Computed example of a mutant assay.
Amino acid sequence: MQHDLTLEGHGVRLVPLAAAHADALARCVDDRVWAGMTSPTPRGVDDMVGVVEAALATPARYAFAVVVGGDVVGSTSFYDVDLRMGRLEVGHTFYAPRVWGTHVNPACKLLLMAHAFGTWGVARVAYRVEARNARSIAAVTRLGARPEGRLRGHRVAADGTRQDSLYFSVLADEWPDVRAGLEVRLAREVVDERTSVLLLGGRSGVGKTSVASAVHDLLVARDVAHAVVEGDALDLAHPAPWEHGVAEANLADVWRRYRALGHRRLVYTNTVSVLQAHALAAALGDRPHVTSVLLTASDATARERLGRREHGASYDAHVARSDAAAGRLAEQVGPDVHRIPTDGRTPAEVAAEVVALTGW
């Protein structure tokens, strides 16, 4: 279906999908992106041209390319549009992973629903999600759409198996509350594009790496875009180049590349990171929001954990450094740093508390 509808606002622009978008869209797609679709993953531009042509050939479908800052980052559609009955569905949506967890999806859905309810005057906007697609289910739920039920054996997946579909919807009388929630969310996510960094510090054996990994798992489950950097690896060299600021310079280079991909949240681990917040913030380059967390553990806990990975002289050296770091941190860490104990707690338990401090 050819159309000339363009929607714009909140940092995104929806333009009529065309074959000219196929090259950029092909670069957005991999198996993760295409999960839940009923067709095989497009492999290259020719396959994506076929996807675009199929979209344009489908009656009652308004297909869009999603454009952010001049770059095509995905596609979405109105489909099964029946204005006589006052209903339609929103779907056939996919985005490049670099914009997952950003303002892009809520902004697109706000534009689409505002047009559907405000301009076309529909009574119902529905969302259909493949039942195994946890990421899409979470995204639709966060929009404020209400679950309606499961259609068993409703569709045929790309591998030929029959899959269930879950239905969600927003009705016209629910739209004002849904719109208000999306506008609040977008005001938070679009207006402030500065980096938000979580600094995890603490003595050796406190569990920094394990907690950072658990934070990563938690944010992935919530579909929150982020990056994790182990600070110890940024200047791991001999002779140790601490006095040359190599770690900060390397961090600046690494983060510049993540920023170019759309990331705004960083988890950074290093024993003394919480003492170096100002230098690390300067390296990130955009007056970042900083949440500093000092993970703590008793001597006994730190020794027991170090004993799992170090032995002999290496164990003794690590214990000595851990004890010295614990003393330095206890003495020098300021009141603006959150202290979270890890004794007797799982990394997932600590990660939940840490993430709550960030507001992510």
Rank of each mutant, 00 (worst) to 15 (best):
R185A: 11
W175Y: 11
V206N: 02
F117Y: 09
A19Q: 13
R321I: 00
H3F: 08
H263G: 04
R259K: 15
R152T: 14
Y127V: 00
M113T: 02
R345A: 15
T271L: 00
L143K: 08
L261D: 12
L198H: 11
W175M: 10
T119Y: 01
T346R: 15
V29G: 01
D192M: 09
T38I: 05
L251T: 01
G207M: 06
R124Q: 12
A158N: 05
A180E: 15
V45C: 05
L83K: 08
G231V: 01
V170R: 10
G36F: 03
L110Q: 05
W34V: 06
R43N: 13
R142S: 06
V81L: 14
V90R: 01
V228W: 11
V246P: 03
N270L: 11
V350C: 07
T58Y: 00
M37A: 13
R32N: 10
H216Y: 01
G307T: 10
V122Q: 04
G160W: 07
V81E: 02
G153P: 10
G118I: 13
S213P: 00
L306G: 00
D31F: 02
L306S: 02
E243K: 13
H103N: 03
G74N: 10
K208P: 09
D177P: 00
A214K: 11
S298D: 13
P347R: 05
